[in-house]
Amino acid sequence: MEMFLFTVFAAAACGGAIAVVLSQNVVRMAFYLVISLGSTAGLFFMLSADFVGATQLLIYVGGTVVLLIFGVMLTASGPFLTIKSSPGSMVLAIAVGACFLMMVVGTVLQVDWDGNAARLEGQYGASSLDRPGYNQHGEGHTTRSIGTALLGARFDKDLGKNREQPSTGYLLPFEIVSVHLLVVLIGAAYLARAKRRVHVPSEF
């Protein structure tokens, strides 16, 4: 069952990504991007990361892609805008990309992951994700642990282990990100505000 679901989601994610590359119409690209990102959210659910998957759906698919399509609508100078990329650069990029992909996948397949996992387990102890604890992580209930981790307390790591030093949380990054979002909000509104259009002679 797991293999079957993984195959479906992985195929949809990769197929969507490849379709984004090959498609020339921007809105279709956005549609394929939605398929790819949505299936990635499915992969996240399979990895028992339910909160990350939900965030992916809400922010990426529901927010960012809608924003992108909105941008396409605001900047399209004709119906079904296509800006073709030159075939030469396409072939070159695909060749380089395929080489890189082979290199990465080859590296991934060469690593002895099981041995590595055993070694790490000997070093750090068993992953607390599988332990019964504050939440059943194995079933994907990660919300509370992520919430407390963002506030600085690590239930996923410190539960039931007599640690000399509690693990570091994510309170400071969380605050920085929230200030960052405020800056982005103001900055984007400032950049995109309506201005008098400079008249450039159009070529088409």
Binding site: V27, F31, V34, G38, D50, F51, G53, A54, T55, L57, L58, V61, G62, G63, V65, V66, I69, F70, V72, M73, P79, F80, N135, G140, H141, T142, T143, R144
Partner: peptide, 28 residues
């Protein structure tokens, strides 16, 4: 019954808008 039930429900409900935007755009 998920711990992220409400969040996920709102997320998926917001996908509905995507279909509507695509419908509006692709109708020509």
């Amino acid at each position: 019954s998920l711990d992220v039930g409400l969040f996920l429900a709102l997320a998926i409900l917001s996908l509905e808008v995507l279909g509507i935007i695509l419908a509006g755009y692709s109708s020509g």
